[in-house]
Amino acid sequence: MDFFQNILNLDIAKNLDLNSILNFPCTIFMKDKNSKYLGANEYLSNLLGFKDSEDLVGCSDRDLWPTDYELLLENDKKVMHQNLPNTFYESGTLPNNSIINAISHKVPLYSRENKVIGIMGISIIIHENDSIQTHREKENKIQLTTRQIDCLYYLALGMTAKLIANKLNISSRTVEHYIETIKTKLNCYNRSELIAKALELPMIKTRVLNQQLMLLKSDDYKI
Rank of each mutant, 00 (worst) to 15 (best):
T174H: 01
Y153W: 05
I164W: 03
H177S: 14
L194P: 07
M159S: 12
C188T: 13
L18P: 01
L152S: 05
G49F: 03
I182M: 02
A161G: 04
D220L: 06
Q143H: 12
C151A: 12
N19E: 12
N23E: 10
L144Y: 00
I164K: 05
S104H: 04
K51G: 09
N187W: 04
E180L: 09
K138D: 06
Q211G: 11
H127N: 14
H105R: 13
L44G: 08
K115V: 00
Y153L: 08
T146D: 14
I99T: 14
L144P: 10
Q148M: 10
S45Y: 05
S171E: 00
Y110E: 07
K217R: 15
N101T: 00
T181C: 05
R207H: 09
N75C: 11
I119L: 06
L94P: 10
K141F: 11
L18I: 05
S131Y: 06
T87Y: 01
D17W: 01
Y154L: 14
K51S: 08
T93C: 14
K167P: 03
P85N: 11
E74R: 13
T87G: 03
R62P: 00
Q143T: 09
M120C: 03
N23I: 03
S20R: 11
N97T: 14
S192V: 12
K138T: 02
S218G: 11
K51H: 06
S131R: 04
D17L: 03
T181E: 10
Y89W: 07
V116I: 13
L48V: 01
L38K: 02
I195E: 12
I149N: 15
N96W: 01
K222C: 13
E137Y: 12
I223Q: 02
P66S: 03
N187G: 03
E54G: 06
H81F: 05
S123Y: 00
G118H: 02
I149K: 15
Q133T: 15
L72W: 13
A196L: 13
K217I: 15
I99R: 14
G39L: 10
T87N: 03
W65Q: 10
Y154A: 09
Q143N: 14
K167C: 08
G49W: 01
K106T: 14
V208K: 06
N23H: 09
L194H: 04
E113T: 06
D150N: 15
E54T: 07
R147K: 15
H105C: 15
F29D: 02
K222L: 14
Y153Q: 06
Y153K: 08
L157S: 08
Q5H: 12
Q133R: 10
N166C: 11
D2E: 14
E54P: 03
E42C: 05
L10V: 00
N169Q: 08
K138F: 08
I125C: 05
N41E: 06
A40F: 05
I99S: 08
M30Q: 12
S20V: 05
L16N: 06
I223D: 02
K31C: 07
L155A: 07
I126P: 04
S20W: 09
N41K: 10
C26N: 07
F3P: 02
T145I: 04
M214T: 14
F88P: 02
R147G: 10
D52Y: 03
L73F: 13
S131M: 13
N166F: 13
N83S: 06
I125N: 08
